[in-house]
Design a protein around this nucleic acid. Structure first.
Lengths: 105, 105
DNA sequence: CCTATGGTTGGACTGTCGTCAAACAATCTC
DNA sequence: GAGATTGTTTGACGACAGTCCAACCATAGG
């Protein structure tokens, strides 16, 4: 079967306030730092530096980020690979992602 | 009596995640747009385009923004004047405020 | 087919958030 | 000083959010 993607908003439907809300949480802004390399990342808590959280909690945070339009999730077999929607975010909110990544703690 | 300021964090104590959290609300990101002109603004709901909200609610939102380090409030008589802490935000999070203001709906 | 893997979903619990209303406080004006 | 003006504070209430646990589901590999 061909790769599929979990539900996510279209690029033009990404709302600034939802992006802000998604990043207004310590866990998720930390995830942003993990995704900053532009690569794909597994969902396992240990794979994203969240070994202290339950896997369902991590899944919840990833869903919030995906539904806000920050990330996209590719389904491949039993694995899911998450990465930043960098181009679409840059197009919609020019300079925002760069400024955020530079300001990360 | 000399003008005073309501409690606010020092510039170096402004935390990105708290700024994000403060702006992850429809009312407050709208306030950011009001303050974008750099000028001082009264706290009256009608003065900031929030005539549909109770004055105590508006007061609450202004406090959240102030305690996040986004705004500063000058006390003058019975009035309080709120404005953006633009220089300090620019110094701490370069480019962030510009990107946000450009992305405002 | 059986089992292990990687992740999602639903429920429960706790805590925080946005809103309003009423009371309060400080200042200005008469 | 009395009353009006400008906000803040406190309490109440419903809604939402973060976390864990248990159950579930789809797929991969024997």
């Amino acid at each position: 079967m061909v790769d599929e993607r979990l539900p996510q908003p279209d690029a033009e439907d990404i709302e600034l306030v939802k992006v802000m809300h998604a990043l207004g949480d310590p866990v998720r802004i930390r995830l942003l730092g993990v995704y900053a390399d532009g690569g794909e990342h597994s969902c396992a808590p240990e794979a994203v530096g969240l070994g202290h959280l339950h896997k369902s909690t991590v899944s919840h945070h990833m869903r919030v980020m995906r539904e806000a339009g920050i990330t996209t999730t590719r389904v491949a077999g039993r694995n899911r690979y998450v990465r930043l929607r960098r181009d679409e975010l840059d197009a919609r909110f020019p300079g925002l992602l760069d400024a955020l990544l530079k300001s990360l703690p």
